[in-house]
């Protein structure tokens, strides 16, 4: 019986330990964020990597998400003559949910994985130890700028995603499905409130924290050479994606 409980409890112990280490890394990051030297140059460099370099991916996914949503909702609403609601439904879905979540998932794949791989490689090649020996704290030098950049840039990317999603939906709705342009826009203005947009952006910032924290955590705890780096990269993407979906539910429940 005890052996069974040990066997069954092992994943739980691992999970609790993992959560504890992630929280400790977060606390350490927060404490180092307010201590000099302030590493603005590295933060800006990371903002370019997380934000500017992700714009292309976000434009494509945002636009096509809006387009396909317009297509799907049009056919549903048409059944009861509610085609005029396509614009507002699309805008609500993009600003509240799809903009932040899809942006976060795309950035997780592009940036979270790169963070885990870069820091993991630095760990297994002793570059992180080298930082320590040169009296440079790796959390302040490597982790804090990445997390700060992700928290700042995810909302910006989400604004872009929301915008191109709505424009993509407008293009499909008005040009292809022949919904009246004035009604499409008027319904968006009527129904979508600023709070919908703000709350979506708060979600995006939170997702930025999750994907960068998990990416950095998996990176700096990498063990086992090249294979370990590969494993850390995969785990960071899977864990971040799961946490984004779970936290999305709870954030939505609290905010809306």
């Amino acid at each position: 019986m005890i052996r069974f409980l040990e066997f069954a409890g092992r994943p739980l112990v691992f999970f609790v330990e993992e959560c504890g280490r992630i929280m400790l890394l977060l606390l350490s990051t927060i404490s180092w964020a307010f201590r000099p030297p302030f590493r603005f140059r590295i933060i800006f460099k990371q903002m370019e990597f997380v934000g500017v370099n992700s714009v292309g991916v976000v434009l494509i996914t945002g636009a096509f998400t809006g387009m396909v949503l317009a297509l799907q909702t049009y056919h549903g609403f048409k059944m009861f003559g509610g085609e005029s609601l396509v614009g507002s439904t699309l805008a609500l879905a993009m600003t509240r949910e799809l903009g932040p979540v899809f942006t976060a998932l795309m950035v997780t794949g592009r940036v979270g994985s790169a963070m885990a791989a870069e820091l993991g490689t630095m760990k297994v090649t002793e570059q992180i130890d080298a930082l320590n020996t040169m009296s440079v704290n790796p959390v302040q030098y490597l982790v804090m700028p990445r997390i700060t950049a992700a928290i700042l840039m995810l909302p910006v990317l989400t604004i872009i995603s929301d915008f191109v999603g709505i424009v993509g939906g407008y293009f499909v709705g008005v040009n292809l499905l022949k919904i009246n342009s004035g009604i499409f826009i008027a319904k968006i203005i009527d129904i979508v409130e600023l709070d919908d947009i703000y709350n979506g952006l708060i979600k995006a910032a939170f997702f930025g924290l999750i994907l960068s924290l998990v990416g950095c955590y998996k990176g700096i705890y990498t063990i086992g050479g090249a294979e370990g780096v590969g494993r850390a990269t995969t785990q960071s993407v899977v864990l971040s994606s799961i946490l984004i979906f779970i936290s999305d539910y709870f954030l939505t429940a609290v905010m809306f």
Binding site: T121, M122, T125, Q127, D129, A130
Partner: peptide, 8 residues
């Protein structure tokens, strides 16, 4: 360090 640990 053993493999120099240069920042690549």
């Amino acid at each position: 360090f053993q493999d120099a640990a240069l920042f690549d």
